[in-house]
């Protein structure tokens, strides 16, 4: 569904029970995508629900006059073998529909994204090269999550991470003592709007141009779908308006496993006294070799990063939902701590 948003779909129709729609709708509607459900009931499970789907699609077409509609399956509709394309054809919207017959029991959660991209390629919305690049990045992401992410163990108990103020003060002390700090953004898509706040916070604390901070980020404005590129562009503009120049661009916002590798090489070149890695830190495998601060979202992610061996871990709780719907850099927990410890902003 997020991939459909990246493709700038106007409406996403979820073919399934209404409950499957509730969670994703709340998050994605912030991004301006309309989410609609066919609200399958027991009757449709038994007798089939393609007719209801095509009726819903017809209504959506009438109501919103969309340019691009995403049609997405759920466990319920896929188990009984519903044909999304047939329903879209029936409703006369097949030309502007991207149908994704993947459900939650299909396997890795990247499969759905790949399936959508494939459909988009076949519809001529995405080039073959772009499809291959994203597919590769998604497969790397799935692999990364299984080997170093929270999918590497059956159960990871949550942990709150370190006190953001303590970590903030460590960063400031390092800088004030003349140490070199690398601030690495290795984020996934829209979450960059939150993690980029660390760059601004360091600038607010007076270390934006001193040369002692190396800014490294996966903000290549020439990689990815137009929507994703525009994120990078906007963030780079905002940073440069504050006088921050990113020293090394490691890749695009939709390829964190690949940009993470690149960031690792960059860090080994710089050999900073302290490396702050935000977004998906476990994609930047420098723990144990450098002194590290990992900044990521969620209690399970925090405890995973600790056990991987990152020295300090800050939990940016709620980073994803906070970054959704944003087109400007938004305040982060660690960023605010740094600003506070540095004596506030004028």
């Amino acid at each position: 569904m997020y991939t459909l948003r990246d493709l700038d779909a106007d409406v996403i129709v979820l073919h399934g029970p209404s409950g499957c729609c509730f969670g994703p709708a709340r998050l994605l509607e912030k991004e301006g995508v309309k989410i609609v459900t066919t609200a399958m009931s027991e009757d449709e499970l038994i007798f089939g629900g393609e007719r209801k789907l095509s009726a819903t699609l017809r209504k959506v077409d009438e109501l919103f006059n969309p340019k691009l509609i995403g049609v997405v399956g759920t466990c319920a509709s896929m188990i009984i073998g519903e044909d999304l394309r047939r329903a879209a054809a029936e409703a006369g919207v097949i030309k502007k529909a991207i149908c994704c017959s993947i459900h939650s029991a299909s396997g890795d959660n990247t499969l759905g994204a790949v399936a959508v991209l494939k459909e988009a390629m076949e519809a001529g919305l995405v080039s073959r090269e772009e499809y291959s690049r994203q597919k590769h990045a998604l497969e790397m992401a799935a692999l990364l999550e299984r080997t170093r992410g929270t999918a590497r163990a059956e159960y990871i108990p949550g942990s709150p991470g370190d006190d953001p103020a303590a970590v903030g003060s460590l960063i400031l002390r390092t800088l004030e003592g003349g140490g070199e700090v690398a601030c690495v953004l290795n984020a996934k898509k829209e979450t960059a709007f939150l993690y980029a706040d660390l760059f601004l916070a360091l600038a607010d604390a007076g270390f934006g141009k001193s040369g002692s901070v190396h800014f490294v980020a996966n903000l290549d404005p020439k990689i990815g779908l137009p929507r994703i590129r525009s994120y990078s562009e906007k963030i780079l503009q905002e940073l440069s308006a504050r006088g921050i120049e990113v020293e090394v661009i490691t890749g695009g916002l939709d390829e964190y496993p690949i940009s993470g590798e690149r960031a690792r090489e960059v860090l080994f070149d710089i050999r900073p006294d302290l490396a702050i890695i935000s977004g998906i830190p476990h994609a930047v495998a420098v723990e144990g070799k450098l002194r590290t601060v990992a900044v990521s979202a969620g209690r399970r992610a925090a405890s995973n990063l600790k056990s991987l061996g990152y020295d300090y871990v800050v939990n940016e709780e709620g980073a994803h939902s906070a970054s959704l719907g944003n087109r400007r850099i938004c305040k982060s927990i660690l960023g605010e701590s740094i600003r506070g410890l540095a004596g506030g902003t004028q």
């Binding site: 027991e42 449709e44 499970l45 038994i46 007798f47 089939g48 629900g49 188990i79 009984i80 073998g81």
Partner: peptide, 12 residues
Amino acid sequence: GPEPGVGCAGRG
């Protein structure tokens, strides 16, 4: 239950 080819007879 459903016509052949659609829905789910078992669920029915």
